[in-house]
C-alpha cells in the first residue's frame, strides 16, 4: 500500500521533471546558453595563460585553483570526521573495558 503510493508520487515527479527537461535547449546544440563567453574564453586563452593544453586541468588548477583548495579541504574534513567517529570511540571503549576489568 505504502509502496504503491510512493510509486504513484514518483511517477508524477518523473513526468514533471521530464516535461520540464524537454523544454531545455536540446542536447548538443552549440547555442546552448551555458556555452557562453566564459567557456569560450577558457578554450581560447588557456594555452596562452597557463601553457597547459588540457583545458580542464588549467581551469581546476589555475583559473579556479581556490575552488580546488576547498575541494581538498573537503577530503581532509571527511577523513577527520571518519577517524573521529571510528577510531576515537574505539580507544575510549577499550579504556573503559580495562577500568571495568
Amino acid at each position: 500500500m505504502k509502496k504503491a503510493l510512493v510509486i504513484l508520487v514518483l511517477l508524477g515527479l518523473f513526468v514533471l521533471l521530464t516535461s520540464s527537461v524537454l523544454k531545455m535547449p536540446s542536447l548538443g546544440s552549440i547555442d546552448n546558453p551555458s556555452y557562453n563567453e566564459t567557456s569560450v574564453y577558457y578554450i581560447e586563452n588557456a594555452i596562452e595563460d597557463t601553457h597547459a593544453p588540457n583545458a580542464i586541468a588549467s581551469i581546476i588548477t589555475d583559473y579556479r585553483s581556490f575552488d580546488t583548495l576547498g575541494e581538498t579541504t573537503v577530503l581532509f574534513t571527511s577523513i577527520a570526521a571518519v577517524l573521529s567517529v571510528l577510531r576515537l570511540n574505539h580507544n575510549s571503549k577499550e579504556k573503559g573495558d580495562k577500568n571495568n576489568g
Binding site: T50, H51, A52, A57, T61, S65, T68
Partner: peptide, 12 residues
C-alpha cells in the same frame, strides 16, 4: 611546463 600546475596536480 605550465608553472605550478604539475606540482599542484602531484599534491592532489
Amino acid at each position: 611546463s605550465g608553472g605550478f600546475i604539475p606540482l599542484i596536480t602531484a599534491a592532489i
